[in-house]
């Protein structure tokens, strides 16, 4: 394919190809590949420290200083983001792709009125004047469900609840109608009833505006509710991926299977012993060779000291990186 050809309409909006990130030489993201189609929600799920946020930050060139991208390419709507310099990337951010960060209150500027924070992107990327930008910002705040937005736009973040701040973040992220929204744990810091409001809002954005969302979370319940497709990470790698219903119905990777089995169910037997995953996640400089789940996997065998490839499993649209997926069904 020549570099100049325009992307086909059904081509994926976002393609991450073989991304690898190190911190002080330790491999924290290793060979991550993702593909996200327009209008879909892809959930990146995994436990603390597995590399979800670093993957997201790499996409928009926002890696922390200590981290280095050592491999991989990111393409957004046919444009190679990894080839862009910092100024060009800054133009992409907030315009074609935006991020909602993990900590809503901390990510807003405490000294700036929330309305101005939403309007800023419009001035920056759309060249709107102060008054136009303010009017559009208020309209956006109304759309994300902030009552009395005209007045609330004048408030500072500390004057608003956590749920309200998260709505402001979402409004600021969406006001320039980006093609891609990256939401890193958008509801983790919120109460369940407020989480339900924000998830409802994100459902609405999909239905009305056809938003394409990369959703990062550690909560399998949020995945089940929001995602079309899932990629499960462990130790900086994707260990399993596929459509959400197929994957939850019959997880192929031992880690996914056990992870789902450890969660207490509302319809489970009360006080019953819960399934556990023995041991702890090793630190990034102490991964075992081969399969990184090997040190905790009940199925681990000699072959697991070689790295299992992420290969088709169970159906044409599913992948897993495990030598023993055939035996995994007996696990849980």
């Amino acid at each position: 394919m020549s570099a100049a050809s325009p992307p086909a309409a059904d081509a994926p909006l976002l393609v991450v190809d073989d991304l690898a990130v190190t911190i002080n030489g330790a491999s924290v993201v290793d060979g991550v590949s993702l593909s996200l189609r327009r209008g879909r929600v892809l959930a990146l799920v995994g436990e603390s420290g597995c590399g979800k946020s670093l993957t997201a930050l790499s996409i928009l060139g926002l890696l922390p200083k200590a981290a280095r991208r050592v491999r991989g390419r990111v393409t957004l709507d046919g444009q190679d983001l990894t080839a862009l310099d910092e100024r060009a990337l800054a133009r992409v951010r907030g315009d074609q792709a935006s991020v909602i960060f993990q900590e809503p209150v901390a990510s807003l500027n405490p000294l700036m009125r929330v309305g101005d924070q939403v309007a800023e992107a419009l001035r920056l990327h759309r060249g709107l004047t102060g008054e136009e930008a303010r009017r559009e910002a208020v309209a956006m705040l109304t759309r994300v469900g902030i009552p009395d937005a005209e007045r609330r736009a004048e408030a500072y973040p500390f004057e608003l609840s956590g749920g309200m701040c998260q709505r402001v973040m979402i409004a600021a992220a969406l006001v320039c109608q980006p093609k891609l929204l990256i939401a890193d744990e958008p509801t983790t810091a919120l109460d369940v009833t407020v989480q339900a409001q924000i998830l409802g809002l994100m459902h609405g954005l999909r239905a009305e505006a056809g938003a394409t969302i990369l959703l990062i979370t550690h909560d399998m319940g949020v995945v089940a509710e929001m995602a079309d497709d899932v990629a499960v990470m462990y130790g900086g790698r994707i260990v399993e991926s596929g459509p959400v219903e197929e994957l939850f119905a019959d997880p192929a990777h031992p880690y996914t299977r056990l992870l789902l089995a450890t969660i207490p169910r509302l319809d489970g037997r009360r006080k019953e012993h819960l399934r556990t995953i023995e041991g702890v996640v090793p630190t990034a400089d102490q991964w075992p060779d081969g399969c990184r789940f090997r040190s905790r996997c009940p199925l681990a065998a000699d072959i697991c000291s070689r790295t299992p490839p992420l290969e088709p499993v169970r159906s044409a649209v599913r992948r897993a990186a495990c030598w023993r997926t055939a035996e995994a069904a007996a696990l849980a």
């Binding site: 989480q195 089940a224 509710e225 219903e245 789902l260 969660i263």
Partner: peptide
């Protein structure tokens, strides 16, 4: 509002 880990 509890998110159930079960898409169906």
């Amino acid at each position: 509002a509890i998110p159930l880990p079960d898409p169906v």
